[in-house]
Design a binder for these strands. Structure first.
Lengths: 200, 200
DNA sequence: ACCTGAACACCGTTCAAGT
DNA sequence: ACCTGAACACCGTTCAAGT
């Protein structure tokens, strides 16, 4: 038998991050209270400060965790069998994965970008963001070599793609797009970017 | 002489919205306190509740005001002399205006989209959002008639354009794009969408 | 090392009372 | 009509004390 369960079950730090992420996804950052969190986990309200110096540090950890999960989704989408097809299909698969994550974790994604935005953002977070967007970058470079995508700076093209994916997700989350038609709309948006707005 | 200045100067409601917007832009929604707001304006902490039933109602009003200001910027950009040129130039002008607003009012824009996102969002807000994005829509339709933009559903094309603008702004705000190169990068992104990722 | 529990300064909201 | 000021329940943070 281990020590009596007067203290927490072992990994309060991980439990805090997990529960905080749940609350953020369900009700937004504004609904997150350290004291309530501590109550939920059965520890005193002072306990979290052992693992996070302040609330922002916990939020940063939640954001970091979010980027890890998003990265996993994107890597999975990029490695899909269907993703071995044309660049158009690869792009569509990644876009679906990104938008899915964004819609299912809207408040979390907002927190993730807000955390990254902070000047005092930990270096760990900046690195995680770069890694998160590495998968799409690779897909673009490969497509360029196959001649399916115009040559030129990869960053320029990646920027256009990431902006489109992120912006599309934001439009859905904001309720500017009918959720019913969002699937078809995303396909149309991907095709618009691939083919261009100008007639061919 | 009017009544002695024991009460507020006349339009506490407007003053609350204006000051709240300032605080949000400067330090984010999290830094907004009704009590501090009241202190800044020289009224008691209970006074705001005469004009807004709760904090969220004030935030909705701030968001509404933000959409009005954004709409003004977009309409101005669309009516520019240079904007009488090609669709590419019109699009670029509008995109610059949108990204400018987003960068200068990052936290406010986040609040605006979050407010729109709420299910209980007042009808007034939904209407303001539609009007805000009406100007870009008109530009697209005109360009379609001139044959500069592919035919098809205007909404599909507008979605691709709005997603790109909003997403680009989000990338800058998040610090994923070097601010120095952001001007050239925006031009490149606009051109990418106009010309397509696929070689011609 | 890790957690408790009291203390402090703050917050949003409510409401009887004032003018 | 509009604002005040006390009251209430909550919050984040700090810190001596316990195990």
């Amino acid at each position: 038998m281990a020590a009596p369960d007067r203290y927490h079950h072992g990994d309060l730090r991980a439990a805090l991050i997990a529960r905080a992420a749940e609350v953020v996804v369900a009700d937004g950052v504004g609904a997150l209270s350290l004291r309530e969190l501590a109550r939920d986990l059965g520890v005193s309200h002072g306990a979290p400060s052992r693992h996070f110096p302040d609330k922002q540090a916990l939020l940063d950890a939640v954001a970091l965790d979010g980027f890890h999960r998003l990265r996993l989704d994107l890597v999975t989408a990029a490695a899909r069998p269907a993703a071995s097809g044309s660049f158009r299909d690869q792009f569509a698969d990644i876009a679906v994965a990104y938008v899915d994550f964004a819609v299912r974790n809207a408040s979390l994604l907002a927190l993730m970008f807000a955390a990254k935005h902070r000047e005092e953002a930990p270096e760990e977070l900046r690195a995680a963001v770069d890694r998160t967007f590495a998968a799409p970058l690779l897909v673009i470079e490969q497509a360029q070599r196959r001649g399916e995508v115009v040559h030129g700076e990869v960053e320029d093209i990646a920027t256009a793609i990431m902006a489109t994916m992120h912006g599309f997700a934001a439009l859905i989350v904001a309720g500017l797009l009918h959720p019913d038609a969002s699937g078809a709309m995303l396909t149309a948006t991907v095709n618009r970017l691939v083919d261009g707005l100008r007639p061919r």
